[in-house]
Design a protein around this nucleic acid. Structure first.
Lengths: 220, 220
DNA sequence: ACAATATTCTAAAGAGCGTTAGAGTGCGCG
DNA sequence: CGCGCACTCTAACGCTCTTTAGAATATTGT
């Protein structure tokens, strides 16, 4: 009985592991870490067929990583807790530390994006609080409202070009988006630099930030 | 290219997820979190066929979660880093928090084993340092030597019955083993209570302890 | 060099998972 | 009420993973 029970327990944990074993589901988890989303929105943002998205969400729901609730005609999904985002963050931390191919790919992708340590995160907050830099959130505005880095300002990537006047040329602009795999902040930096701003990106998203133990801000 | 690269990245992370998607591999990771082991030892302790153990180790090695090196006729495996044990700990933390069936099974299995918080962990160390309690490691001695909780004493479960004289009847004995799924500490507590000792178990193993940020001791 | 031991490699069967399409369900609006 | 929308359920295909057995490899001791 001992051994049988034991295997059953590892099986339950493996159910969560299985949920984390698919690239599509991982992308969905990262998107949901930005805030609640409907199936349709999720399918569009991840570029996955709606039916397939629904099927994957079913798996995530069965493993208790996400929860769903109906809102009128739409069904909205969210992560089951903060620690799910943290788990995702740890997973890709371990992955990027040990999987060489990922390192190489990440290196190309991030193209100079800073990997933050707890010290640099703390000094980032301090500089932002003091007004020495501008922390810029380039995700869609609803994701910003759901949660964002301390002192961050929201200008979604799509609106950046026509809202450049809101940004100072005297200060360094530090852009971020959904996490190290997300290209939006890199695009934003490219645009800003072309217009003569001083800008750089960081690899952190809200999940990475929270996983490092620092608090997030939420819109009222 | 953007999308292609992106999927490739999630795929790399999913490789690690896949490695965590099998009950047998999870059990092996927990065993390896206790210290380096050869294939044969691992196979015996997990009650898995040697060939199958080797195959699973191959998967773990390909996902860079474990490393191997030859020692004479044996090949010894260990976790690739401390954060792998931490990842395992987080995984089963999330699993046990959200998977109801696991909760129930755990509840029966732990039968009163204390879930530790950071406060109770700290006070445990303080009491052990002061000599108010005896922290007892009932795992095989080589696992104890590899790493153990602060101030812990080693009496492997197999030797406990004939070494009872080494333990004080005046102090409470706090037993632990490999983690919340491990039955050895529960057996030890049963034995000790039957002989008139004051004893209880805790769910922590070295992985859970380290994941909570506290230091471990290692034999010189 | 040869036998014994520990482990890996190869091949093949079976189970389980991802994906797609079509039918079905629940909600809101006219 | 009934139509349309958002989503889920079911069934089926192909593919990948697990598991087992047999052959192969590397190392030690004689």
């Amino acid at each position: 009985m001992n051994r049988v029970t034991k295997n059953l327990l590892y099986e339950q944990v493996a159910r969560v592991g299985k949920a984390l074993a698919s690239p599509k589901r991982l992308e969905m988890i990262e998107l949901l870490a930005q805030g609640e989303k409907t199936v349709e929105v999720l399918a569009r943002e991840a570029a996955i067929d709606v039916k397939l998205t629904s099927a994957h969400l079913r798996v995530l729901k069965e493993s208790r990583l996400v929860q769903s609730h109906r809102e009128g005609r739409f069904i909205s999904y969210r992560l089951a807790g903060e620690d799910v985002a943290e788990l995702w963050s740890r997973l890709h931390e371990v992955a990027s530390k040990y999987v060489v191919e990922l390192e190489v790919a990440l290196g190309q992708l991030l193209s100079g994006a800073e990997r933050l340590t707890s010290e640099t995160r703390a000094s980032l907050v301090a500089k932002a609080a003091h007004g020495d830099i501008v922390v810029l959130d380039v995700r869609p505005n609803d994701e910003y409202r759901s949660a964002h880095l301390p002192h961050a300002r929201s200008i979604p990537l799509a609106e950046l070009k026509r809202r450049l006047a809101e940004l100072p040329r005297s200060k360094e602009i530090v852009a971020y988006c959904r996490g190290p795999f997300c290209m939006m902040s890199a695009e934003a930096v490219g645009l800003l630099r072309a217009r003569g701003f001083r800008a750089r990106k960081i690899g952190d998203g809200v999940a990475e930030w929270a996983a490092s133990g620092l608090p997030l801000e939420r819109a009222a």
